[in-house]
Amino acid sequence: MLKSLKQIRDEINTVSGYKIIIGTSIVLFFLFIAFAAPHLTQWDPEKQGVGPRLEKPSGEHKLGTTYMGYDLFSRTLFGTRTALSVVLIATALAMAIGIPLGLISGYIGGYSDRLMVLITDALYSFPGILLALLVAAILGGGIINAALAVSVVYIPQYFRVIRNHVMSVKEELYVKGAEAIGSPKRDTIIKYILPNVSQSIPVILTLNAADGVLTLAGLSFLGFGITPPTPSWGYDLKTASSYLGLAESYPEVWYWSLVPGLAIVVLILGFTLLGEGLNDILNPKLREGRRR
């Protein structure tokens, strides 16, 4: 760990260093908004008719109001809360299931491992959004259910990455050494394998979080996952988009769709930059390959 911190310090002036700094700043910015949302606006995001419908941005309604009379600024701020909590719960769930499964399956090997690989590969080959849609349709709306739907998509990813890493680490001599001193399987997995595969976790975590934001937005855009009136960027984008074609009669709608869309893009950019930067630093082999 110390070494990687030192490496990060060495890397700070390089491209990967900038990626990490910018990525972290963006993510921290959104985290701040999520926590401070109630203090930044006086409007309840779930309340309709807080002002006249489709009003232009003004001092009172900083980004105007929607057709249903929601305050757009407030909804965007609170939408950050929804997005981040769903993504947080989903990645935690995916990690809690995917990592142990990958560790055990990879270490034990044999037919049970092949079966697991078959199942997760089948899941993985599904387009993520379809799988999430299916689960969301079965479970219904709400933050927890949306998180479950999103996590199902990422369990196979954690499983695959961890399992493949375990497959190579378990051939290392020190794992054989652990067996030679009579280390029980559990000890071998926790003390000898996990610490040596864990460097790939932060990278998948951040990249999955980026993807999770998109999946969640997609779900609510299609009317699943987060259902109104819970504030959600995807849902707002969808309602706005149906007015886009009518731009001539509703000249205000451009910012109605722009703001939630921009929030989605910037948050994804933040997570992705962070993930890429971490990847560059934690997987030096890959990095060298790129440089050449």
Binding site: Y174, G182, S183, P195, N196
Partner: peptide
Amino acid sequence: DPSAALNPSMTVFESILHPAKI
């Protein structure tokens, strides 16, 4: 190969202690 036979994430003390613990 002594460099491959030791767990890179365990200190000398931990490496020697673990078998004793088991």
